[in-house]
Nucleic acid binder design. Structure first.
Length: 726
RNA sequence: GCGCGCUUAGCUCAGUUGGUAGAGCAAUCGCUUUACACGCGAAAGGUCGGGGGUUCGAGCCCCUCAGCGCGCACCA
């Protein structure tokens, strides 16, 4: 017997050695791992955030993708799994800002170029680490094609897309109301906002003859329009455009009556004043009626001179003081202290979002969404699980324009010039524009960067070298896009829209969305709760194969996974079982050559048939992306049929030398077949045993292949419908 | 408010055209059996959230109620 089998299975030592064997073989590269005419199978890895460490969610994503890829490779497809790293724009900038904070520095004191360089160094220093962690998961991706989201060719393509969309009138620069985080000093798209339910005070204030309701008295300084529904009987004596002189916070003002359908007669008193600069609804009313807009709060959340004596104060501190003053003036009618409403906050720091009017770049989403909807509703993109299709259709049907400008340095610069006079925006890729095309005024460089999703939304075709590279022609559209269901809008839907727009084709045929990985008690993992499970700790302890099985078995797509350590431990035991079964089989089939027609007795024939049926079954199920059931079936069959029944009964046959040859042949073909079928799920241990088998093979036995299980044929996948014999 | 899910054994979850319920882990009992105690054998465990309907027959289809989770939304 091979001396390696006498020792217990040692994942740590084995995994490193086996991964090197695979990587050195070159078979991660689709140009080498199969015949040149084979049909391609392409999967682009969601770019992993380069600044951090692998988390449990990555563990799940990498496992599922590797299962798909290894299976397809064994089926003989020209299989490409393209790995990537993500600069992760705002995410990374936030991480780096926290680091600066600890060092007593601030991003606002650092020169932008210097800051960019620091974050780049920080990210690159981490990227080696993250890549080695991806390898530890057993990921059989083609490192030769690795991409980083800030690679020059990526930037180039993203710039070209920007220009093309601008020329096609799909991108515009507009002075519109945007969501602003006063801590991070940047705007967001509507997706980066987290809604939070709160109970706050709601104030009823006397505004001339009216009583208005507001939760935000600190915005009210400039309010000079009073709005009501045109059909509201209570206020029919007031006519549109009517001027009313009244006493307000800082003295007498002249208010103008406005009638608008968007007012809810049932809410509050049915009358409100508007603050177009700091409220979306108010902004829209002001746009409709062409009303003045005035800024009240600055970008740091402090009141501007319009607030009179309150100018310079932070809104948080000013609110009670303003109410105090209003009370003294007798303008507070009542305060409702149990007003429940939803507050929009920054998804990173929880700071209340302050809407501001700013000039930014926006993408017109409607035309893009309509094309995507058509393809999705036609069934050209398959969603797994299916209900994500409904969610996507709903979102695309109600889509808003997308603000892609971010006021941070860490990202792809927006190649544009802005006119200092008329604030007209012009795309300027080669820094050629020196005067405003509209008014001939002086221009300045746009210092903003793109929303990171604007570039990652182009990932499938960018990574493949759109438009001219042979890879693009061969591998695009890709087959599967697999990632967490939580980024279905951020990423998946935008990839569909941008892919369709740029290449005219859907970027992928199937979307597979996995759920979240939660802790053992089904709670979200978070640093503050202290319940974060590090996948690398688990692989270290139980082996990567065990971890992978824990990720796959029973884990249906889209459903969250409660990650309990016992779960992983169970599959470590399984690895041990495989190891020992292999030891038994190999020990009992020494010097045994399988006859072309093995002399099976009746029960052997039945078992042989059962195995074939199992493989046929699971092959169909893998094709249907039901990995959760396949892994479980293999586990169950290996343990409770192969080990418990077939191995057990063979002991007697071999000892008594009764039907021994049939029994040995059955043991052997079972082991070999099951190793192949298990390989996508448990690549390391199956490959290790395969290598031991191979080294034992005698001269003259078929070894035309590389000898790596990774590129062996999937069991029963040959014309004969039989497993290969050795 | 709108949308999408979930509710099956103590726990985590399967259950593919409707035919009297399955797995893993945990718990129980017994085993130093010559591949494996990271093991072997045995047994135990559920009125499939409540109610109603369709059907010869429902965990699976329809209606309704309740609880939980998630997403979207400009109600001042």
């Amino acid at each position: 017997m091979d001396s390696r089998l006498l020792k217990p299975y040692n994942p740590k030592e084995t995994e490193e050695r086996i991964y090197k064997l695979w990587e050195d073989s070159g078979f991660f590269n689709p140009d080498k791992n199969t015949n040149p005419d084979a049909e391609p199978f392409t999967l682009i890895m969601p770019p992993v955030n380069a600044n951090g460490s692998l988390h449990a969610g990555h563990g799940l994503i990498l496992t599922i993708e590797d299962v798909m890829v290894r299976y397809k490779r064994m089926r003989g497809f020209k299989t490409l799994w393209l790995p990537g790293l993500d600069h992760a724009g705002f995410e990374t900038q936030v991480v780096y800002e926290k680091k600066l904070e600890k060092e007593g520095r601030s991003r606002f004191e650092i020169e932008p170029k210097q800051l960019y360089k620091e974050i780049l160094d920080f990210t690159l220093a981490n990227s080696t680490n993250i890549k080695s962690q991806i390898r530890k998961m057993g990921a059989s991706c083609d490192w030769g094609r690795e991409k980083f989201t800030l690679d020059p060719d990526v930037v180039k393509t993203v710039h070209q897309t920007f220009e093309r969309m601008y020329d096609d009138d799909l991108i515009y620069r507009g002075k519109r109301i945007i969501s602003w985080c006063s801590k991070h000093q940047t705007s967001f798209s509507d997706l980066e906002i987290k809604d939070e339910e709160r109970t706050d005070d709601f104030y009823y204030l006397k505004y001339g003859p009216f009583t208005i309701g507001t939760a935000r008295p600190e915005t009210k300084f400039g309010d000079k329009y009073v709005v009501m529904h045109p059909d509201d009987e209570r206020y029919k004596e007031y006519k549109e455009g009517q001027k009313i002189n009244l006493e307000w916070i800082n003295g007498p003002i002249e208010a103008t009556v406005v009638k608008d359908d968007s007012i809810d007669k049932e809410f509050g008193t049915g009358v409100m004043t508007i603050t177009p600069w700091h409220d979306t609804l108010d902004f829209e009313i002001a746009e409709r009626h062409k009303l003045d807009k005035e800024q009240v709060i600055d970008e740091n959340g402090k009141l501007l001179p319009i607030a009179g004596e309150f100018a310079g104060q932070h809104i948080k501190k000013a609110r009670p003081l303003i109410i105090e003053k209003l009370q003294k003036k007798g303008l507070v009618e009542k305060i409702d202290t149990s007003y429940k409403h939803v507050v929009r906050t920054c998804y990173k720091c929880g700071t209340i979002i302050e809407p501001q009017i700013k000039s930014q770049w926006f993408v017109k989403m409607k035309p893009l969404a309509e094309k995507a909807l058509e393809k999705i509703e036609n069934g050209e993109i398959v969603y797994i699980p299916e209900h994500y299709k409904k969610i996507t259709v709903h979102w695309l049907g109600n889509i808003m324009d997308w603000n892609i400008s971010r006021q941070i340095v860490w990202g792809i610069p927006i190649p544009a010039k802005i006119c200092k006079e008329c604030s007209h925006g012009m795309v300027d890729i080669g820094e050629k524009i020196t005067k405003c095309k509209k008014c001939d005024g002086e221009v300045e460089k746009d210092n903003d960067t793109f929303d990171t999703w604007f570039s990652s939304g182009q990932w499938p075709f960018v990574t493949l070298g759109y438009p001219d590279s042979p890879d693009f022609k061969k591998f695009y559209p890709t087959d599967v896009m697999e990632t967490g269901g939580d980024i279905i809008f951020f990423w998946i839907s935008r990839m569909i829209m941008l892919g369709l727009y740029v290449t005219g084709k859907i970027p992928f045929k199937t979307v597979y969305l996995n759920g979240m990985v939660l802790d053992a008690k089904s709670q979200k993992m978070s640093k503050s709760k202290g319940n974060v499970i590090d996948p690398l700790v688990l692989t270290e302890k139980y082996g990567t194969d065990a971890f992978r099985m824990g990720m796959v078995v029973g884990n249906t797509p889209g459903t969250s996974l409660a990650l309990a350590e016992e779960r992983i431990r169970g599959y470590k035991n399984f690895a041990n079982k495989i190891w020992n079964a292999a030891r038994f089989v190999l020990d009992n089939t020494k010097d045994f050559k399988i006859p072309t027609t093995p002399p099976y007795d009746e029960e052997d024939k039945k078992s042989d048939e059962e195995l074939k049926n199992l493989i046929t079954e699971i092959t169909t199920e893998i094709d249907e992306y039901k990995f959760y059931i396949v892994a479980e079936k293999l586990y169950h069959y290996f343990w409770h049929t192969f080990a418990d029944i077939i191995i057990e009964r063979s002991k007697k046959k071999i000892a008594e030398n009764k039907n021994a040859d049939g029994a040995k042949a059955l043991l052997y073909t079972h082991l070999e077949t099951l190793l192949g079928a298990l390989h996508p799920f448990m690549p390391f241990i199956t490959e290790e045993i395969w290598q031991i088998i191979k080294s034992r093979r005698k001269v003259g036995t078929p070894t035309e292949t590389s000898g790596l299980l990774m590129v062996e044929q999937w069991p029963f996948d040959s014309a004969q419908g039989k497993p290969k014999s050795i």
